[in-house]
Write a protein that binds this DNA or RNA. Structure first.
Ligand SMILES: NC(=O)c1ccc[n+]([C@@H]2O[C@H](COP(=O)([O-])OP(=O)(O)OC[C@H]3O[C@@H](n4cnc5c(N)ncnc54)[C@H](O)[C@@H]3O)[C@@H](O)[C@H]2O)c1
Ligand SMILES: NC(=O)c1ccc[n+]([C@@H]2O[C@H](COP(=O)([O-])OP(=O)(O)OC[C@H]3O[C@@H](n4cnc5c(N)ncnc54)[C@H](O)[C@@H]3O)[C@@H](O)[C@H]2O)c1
Lengths: 252, 252
DNA sequence: CCATCTTTGTGCACGCGTTCACAAAGACAT
DNA sequence: ATGTCTTTGTGAACGCGTGCACAAAGATGG
């Protein structure tokens, strides 16, 4: 999961489980593809395959929305697209600001998939005075000094942070103070926010480390250990079954 | 969660729960920061606060590693850094290839945090012949034709896909055929891979949609509904409590 | 050596999420 | 109308993850 909500411990808003909410965009994407191919209806089995999930799970997910399938036939594609869009709040327009227009921020600004579905880049903000006024993806970058004004003038409630880690908390605080209540954080830091503010993080580094963990499992298991032992571990992991013994000694 | 493993249904490798594995990088980051400040030991309470998790959870997580705390004192920072690094497979070097050097791929290539911890960009690969040879972040881009050779010559087992969605599955298949067994996917598609291959995805669009959902909940609840009803929904959500009634009618 | 105080490691209970499996709903043919 | 066949919607069981709460471990001071 490159994701992970912080705070607001699974509040299950209005009865839709968090896990289901996280899958709705997946279904929506698959349904949109079907819609473009003018497919009128789809069974839970087919759609589940397209979305890469279990069909029972998909049916249960839809049942939380009120579920509009027809037994023996399946689901009406157009109708589901609408229902899910509405449920996710995609029938309205969400102005978004991106703070930190460096490598990543610029890539995000250039990303087309942004506008495609309800999201609109309202402003690009950077602390570098040299960037102010310079257009990125057709949008002029504005200085951080304008942050509060931009948020308020545009009624922005969703902010994207793509600054260096060191600046993230500070930027976050300003965004929140200005009225932003949802933040997508790309900086590798834990953000502290007051209740009522949602934070989701995208952390490349964590994802890679998780992959490395599994990769090591796959590779090792026999020719493991004995890599580079920095004088700290004694007889590190001879890997003898679960709960394998570990050196009960601590280094300086 | 911008994350989400596909396939391999929570295999709990060697007894370490998947949820714990996903948190280890978080602890490692916090510990590294402490280490740089030369802090010798840290209590579960302090470290948990820094990582943004519950302290009991943290202690339980560490207990899976064999746990090396000292009661009444806490954990030795350096030692934990080493133990977690080893557990995550970060004591070895992981060559990584990035496929699709567009806006995002270039940003990733330029990303410093890559090399910092065990990961090394072994090659950049793109299908555009015009890019071949052109250096990005100091590394010359190579053509897709070379993909298999690059993977094999460098012993690459981790691949990053940053191509357009349409090309992702095809690229994925080639990576897997060439020997890659872990994939980090930035393209908005569900990738099908054989057993034994791990896929993690980072999906900006999904993250935003999840935020939009919660944002809508926060904003609405009273002045909801009655937005733009595309002749499909009849008496859409009057929001009368949980399991609120929904129109039992389907459009054409 | 003993008492006190801090902090770990974990038993336990609870709730969420997943999946199976099946009854019922409805389409469709005859 | 009746029967058959497909597919939904969900009851129920199970397993994982979380967090409380506490006993035991060990440091520290006298
Ligand atoms: N580039 C990637 O692929 C990538 C991947 C994963 C994570 N990240 C993270 O994303 C963040 C940005 O990465 P990047 O490669 O774009 O870095 P970058 O250095 O290229 O860009 C950072 C930008 O933020 C601006 N900035 C600095 N402080 C600011 C402030 N207080 N307010 C507003 N703007 C400020 C800088 O002027 C700069 O333009 C970093 O935290 C990085 O760790 C990047
Ligand atoms: N830019 C972003 O911020 C962003 C954010 C989220 C997701 N994404 C996704 O990441 C992917 C890349 O986005 P982008 O903005 O960099 O797009 P882009 O068009 O700038 O770059 C895509 C690159 O992939 C290359 N390519 C195409 N087919 C290929 C193939 N078969 N093999 C190898 N290379 C191939 C192209 O030559 C191009 O250089 C897309 O799927 C996009 O949806 C991008």
């Amino acid at each position: 999961m490159a994701t992970g909500r912080t705070h607001r411990p699974a509040t299950r808003s209005r009865g839709i489980p968090e896990a289901t909410v996280a899958r709705l965009p997946l279904y929506l994407r698959a349904l949109t593809a079907l819609s473009e191919r003018s497919v009128p209806t789809v069974s839970s089995e087919e759609l589940a395959a397209a979305a890469g999930v279990n069909s029972a799970k998909l049916r249960k997910d839809f049942s939380y929305l009120g579920s509009y399938g027809t037994r023996g036939v399946g689901y009406d594609v157009e109708y589901l697209v609408y229902q899910i869009s509405r449920e996710l709040g995609l029938t309205q327009d969400w102005p978004v600001v991106i703070v930190g227009i460096g490598n990543l921020g610029a890539a995000l600004a250039n990303y087309g998939g942004f506008a495609s579905r309800g999201f609109r880049v309202a402003a690009l903000i950077d602390a570098d005075p040299g960037m102010a006024g310079k257009p990125v993806a057709g949008i002029p970058v504005q200085h951080t000094d304008e942050l509060e004004k931009i948020i308020q003038d545009n009624g922005v409630s969703i902010g994207v942070i793509a600054t260096p880690a060191g600046a993230a908390q500070q930027v976050c605080d300003r965004l929140v103070a200005a009225g932003v209540t949802s933040i997508l954080n790309f900086a590798p830091t834990v953000l502290n926010v007051p209740d009522g503010v949602d934070v989701r993080k995208v952390d490349l580094s964590i994802e890679l480390q998780i992959l490395a963990f599994h990769e090591q499992r796959k590779a090792g298991e026999e020719a493991a250990a004995e890599a580079a032992v920095p004088a700290a571990a004694r007889k590190a992991s001879t890997d003898q079954g679960p709960d394998g013994d570990v050196p009960a000694v601590m280094p300086a």
